[in-house]
Simulated scan of single mutants.
Amino acid sequence: MSALHTVKVEGESRYDILIGPGLLGDARIAQTLRGRHALIVSDVNVAPLYADRVEATLLSARPSLHVGRYVMPAGEQEKTLARFCECIDALAAMCATRDAAVIALGGGVVGDLAGFAAACWMRGIDVIQLPTTLLSMVDSSVGGKTAVDLPAGKNLVGAFHAPRAVIADTAVLRSLPPRELRAGLAEVVKYGAVFDAGFFAWLEAHADALVASEDATLSEAIARSCRHKAEVVSRDPFEQGERAVLNFGHTFGHAIETEQGYAGAQSDALNHGEAVAVGMVLAAKLAAAVGWAPLSDAHRLEALLHRLGLPTAMPTGLDPSRLLERMRLDKKAQAGGMRFVLWKPLGSATLASGVPDETVLEVLRRG
C-alpha cells in the first residue's frame, strides 16, 4: 500500500484530494491560490501546531502573498453565527479581494465555518481545505457542504461551496488524541456500510492497524473513503438524491449531539464521530425492525465499531421522545415527514420514508 494518493473529484466542480504524509510543507498548497490574499482559519488547538508551517510554505512559494489569520476557540459549540461573523471581519480587515482564498486548517468545525465564510465573502471566494482530523479528511472536507449550528439544530445555516483543493497531511494524525482518531474511523466505517461490503471486510481485517495509526493503512482507508465520496458527490453535488445515503447514522447521531448541547469535549457527552457510530447502529437496528436487513448485520457493525474503540449504545439519560422531535428538524426531513438512510443489506443503502414513529421510538428505547 502506498502512503501517497490523489483522488479526483469530477462533475460540476472539479478538484483534487491529495492524501499522504508531509503535505503541509508541500508547495502545491501555494499553487492552489489565484490571488494575493490568503486567510488561514484555524482553532486554538491546531494553530499553534501547524499554522506557522503552512504560512511558511505559502510565503516560500509566494513571497508577496498577504497572509492573515483567524484563530477561533475549539469545539462544536463554537460553530456559530457569531464566530462566522468574526471570520468575515478578518477577511474585511485584510481587504480580501474576490480572488482571495480561505485556508481551512483544522477539523470539521473549522472546515465547515471557514467554508461558509468563503461561500459568503463577496458572494464566494476559494476555500482550500487542509483537514487535520481523520473525520474531516474522509468526510467534511470533501463535497462542499459548509454550515454553522443553531441551538435548534446542527448545520441549519450554510451553503454548498466546493473547495478548490483538499490536501490531507496524514502525518498530523499522529498528534490526534486517540479519541479523535477513533471518531474519524466511524465515518470510514460508514463508507463500507453503505457502499462497499468488500471495504467493510477490509476494515475488519485491518482494524488493529487502523487503531495503531499505521501510515500506509490509514492512507489507504482515507483514499478509499474519499473515492466513494468523490464518486457520489460528482453525481449529486447538492444532495438531491443519491448523496443523501452519506448521512447513514447521522439522523440519529445529530439528534444525540443536539440534545447533549454539542458538548462532545466533555467526557460524558459524545463527539460527532461517536454519535455517528451510535447512530449507525440504531439505523441498522431500524433496518432490521422494518425487515430490510438481518439483525446479524447490525451485530457485525457493532462488533467492528467496538474493535475500533467506538460506542455502540445510546447514552444514558436521553429521552427518546425528545430525540424524535430533534429528528423532525433534521435537514433530511421533508414535508412528508422524516427520512432515514437504511441499509438493505450491509454494503448498500437507500432512503426510507414513512417509518412509523413508534418503530423509531422502540429502537431508541432499546438503544
Rank of each mutant, 00 (worst) to 15 (best):
H5K: 00
E10G: 11
E12N: 03
R14T: 13
I29V: 15
I29F: 03
R34V: 08
P48I: 08
A51W: 07
R53F: 01
S64D: 15
V67G: 05
V67S: 03
R69W: 09
E78D: 08
K79S: 12
K79L: 04
T80G: 05
A90H: 10
L91E: 07
A92D: 11
M94S: 06
C95W: 04
R98F: 13
R98L: 06
V102H: 08
A104V: 03
V110R: 01
W121R: 13
M122F: 11
G124K: 12
L130W: 01
T132G: 00
L134T: 01
S136H: 01
S141Y: 00
G144L: 00
K145V: 00
T146C: 09
V148P: 07
P151C: 08
L156E: 09
R164E: 06
P177H: 11
R179L: 06
R182L: 03
E187Y: 06
V194L: 09
F199Y: 15
F199K: 10
F199L: 13
F199N: 05
W202F: 11
E204C: 14
E204F: 10
E204W: 11
D215H: 06
L218C: 02
A223T: 00
S225T: 03
A230Q: 01
F238D: 03
F248Y: 15
E257L: 12
T258V: 12
G261M: 09
Y262D: 01
G264R: 04
H272M: 04
G273K: 10
G279K: 11
K285E: 15
K285R: 15
A288Q: 04
A288I: 05
L295G: 05
E302R: 14
L304M: 10
L305F: 14
G309C: 09
T312S: 08
G317K: 11
S321P: 00
S321V: 13
L329Y: 14
L329W: 13
Q334H: 08
Q334A: 14
L351Y: 03
S353K: 12
V355M: 09
L364S: 02
